[in-house]
Design a protein around this nucleic acid. Sequence first.
DNA 1: CCCGGCGTTCTGCTGAGAGCAGCGGGCGCC
DNA 2: GGCGCCCGCTGCTCTCAGCAGAACGCCGGG
Lengths: 127, 127
Amino acid sequence: MAETAPPPQPVHDDVPPDTDAPPQSARPTWTRREPLWRHLVGERLRQLRHERGETLDRTARRAGISPQYLSEIERGVKEPSSEMIAAIAGALDITLVDLVSAVADRLVTVQGAWGQPTCRAAFALAA
Amino acid sequence: MAETAPPPQPVHDDVPPDTDAPPQSARPTWTRREPLWRHLVGERLRQLRHERGETLDRTARRAGISPQYLSEIERGVKEPSSEMIAAIAGALDITLVDLVSAVADRLVTVQGAWGQPTCRAAFALAA
DNA sequence: CCCGGCGTTCTGCTGAGAGCAGCGGGCGCC
DNA sequence: GGCGCCCGCTGCTCTCAGCAGAACGCCGGG
């Protein structure tokens, strides 16, 4: 590491959740301030996988990665590359378009506790 | 690399754009099929930076990274970590919430050439 | 011509960490 | 007990993130 510019300090504290939490828990993988991208995308990938009734092992194989690694990605422990995100999305039969939109939707929902509407809410109003 | 599972093959071809293109060009940093996450987020970061009238050098310094590296991130050449994304978003005075939403909006806009409405359009309808 | 500003590209470097494998553990269910 | 599902730890290899230095291109102005 070069000595001129120190690496950017982590802007946020990653506080891992209780490991006692059941794996099916809806508890987010961050407990303080803003989550990082890897937390959000991981959470959403897990949610999508559960919605499809797929096991971690099965989805991982379909994506061409190890089950452990998919577990780590879903929990926001590891930083997936863009290709990995695409591969997992493919294994879940969702496009990157819909995945990022889904992540954004989740974001708005979480941050919108004080009333910010979601995309879906907007369409409902329009109808 | 372990010999058991080959790395997932790139799902998409990254074809770099013409280097003759002016840096202010609206030409996307992918020219085939679906873009990858790093292309989309990079594009959006550049767009946001231009909207704010900030130079690459200035934003990079604010984010605590090198200007060259920010250039690479914006062009989708390098894979930014979640912390990097957060740092750059902070330098642009935008939350990760709004950034991912902005990325998703861009996605819908691009993919919606055949008529899929955006969030903004939905709110306009509601009003 | 010169200069400065802005951004990109190239080369080269180092250390972090991605991604994996093996193993063990916990939990729920039968 | 068994099984399935998932998580955590250790350890490994190799890629590449992130940087620095240098050069380049383009533009505008003197």
